[in-house]
């Protein structure tokens, strides 16, 4: 019965929100609270105070805590795109030198892979154009998938994807969602672990906490952050391949749903996508006549 109740609740609530935002935010806030109390030697007193409260007061406090975590989780959920872009290397301002350093390193690596004719590695991990190379490995993996429709078919993924997604079969959408969910979970975990390591480290220095607590928090948190980021690269490779295969298998569904004839060959397809981009961006009508509606 308990398992049924849990499955009903989690079915009603968004599983992605619960896993990627709420659970991680809950762990983050609890760890911050424990460190804040332990750094001042107040952890035992806090537990004593909690135990001295009556049950109704404890329930109210727990409900207020859950509500606070929910709000924080909602903020985290809204920032998942920004978190992903931060890991992709979309850095500006004082981080620009770091971005240039990363891009230069990946140029060198791309050149080395080309000289070794490692086509499979380049396909999975780098965009074809040097101008599209990003500062991080994650950024290059995702950029390779974003550039794939344009490089192979001449289709602008930014324009095509929002129109293609609703046409996809349910099993494809589910697979894309699962791949994306795994990637986001690891990136949010990495971001929150890094935030915890930074905030707790500064706090523990200020309150002059024990050395062991400081080292566990800082080194432990950043070890988790780095491991989570490294793990996200595998999830990103899977997600990118799912995107590429979806374009390969279903890109022409857009033309069929627009009641346009399928292109005859690769060159014609490139031309068709160019015309499609002009239609979307500049309202230039398509030259092909619409076929008569089916009887």
């Amino acid at each position: 019965m308990f398992a049924t109740a849990i499955s009903t609740v989690t079915g009603v609530l968004d599983r992605r929100f619960l896993r990627n935002s709420f659970a991680l935010s809950l762990a983050f806030i609890v760890l911050c609270g424990v460190v804040a109390l332990a750094g001042n030697g107040q952890l035992g007193a806090a537990i004593t105070i909690w135990q001295s409260w009556r049950a109704p007061v404890q329930l109210l406090a727990a409900a207020a805590f859950i509500a606070t975590v929910w709000v924080v989780a909602a903020v985290v959920q809204s920032q998942i795109r920004s978190i992903t872009q931060a890991f992709e290397g979309y850095w500006s301002g004082p981080l620009r030198p770091l971005r240039r350093y990363g891009e230069k390193r990946h140029w060198q690596r791309l050149d080395k892979l080309r000289s070794q004719q490692q086509a499979a590695q380049i396909y999975a991990r780098y965009p074809l154009s040097r101008n599209e190379v990003r500062a991080t490995r994650l950024g290059n993996i995702l950029r390779a998938a974003e550039c794939y429709p344009r490089d192979r078919y001449g289709a602008d993924s930014v324009l095509v994807w929002p129109r293609l997604y609703p046409l996809l079969p349910d099993n494809i959408i589910t697979g894309i969602g699962q791949a994306r969910e795994s990637l986001e979970f690891l990136l949010v975990l990495s971001a929150l672990a890094a935030a915890f390591g930074t905030v707790s480290g500064i706090y523990l220095i200020v309150v002059m906490a024990p050395v062991w607590l400081f080292l566990v928090c800082v080194w432990g948190a950043f070890a988790v952050a780095i491991l989570a980021y490294r793990s996200s690269l595998g999830a990103a490779l899977l997600y990118a391949e799912v995107l590429r295969s979806t374009f390969d298998m279903h890109r022409l569904d857009i033309f069929s749903n627009m009641r346009l004839p399928a292109p005859a060959n690769a060159a014609a397809e490139r031309q068709r996508w160019t015309e499609f981009s002009r239609l979307v961006l500049r309202n230039v009508p398509l030259p092909q006549p619409y076929p008569p509606p089916p009887p």
Partner: peptide
């Protein structure tokens, strides 16, 4: 991170 942690730990150790 390793260097920062070591520096912070050394500072706290001296202070301790």
């Amino acid at each position: 991170v390793f260097v920062a942690g070591a520096a912070g730990g050394t500072w706290l150790g001296i202070d301790g």
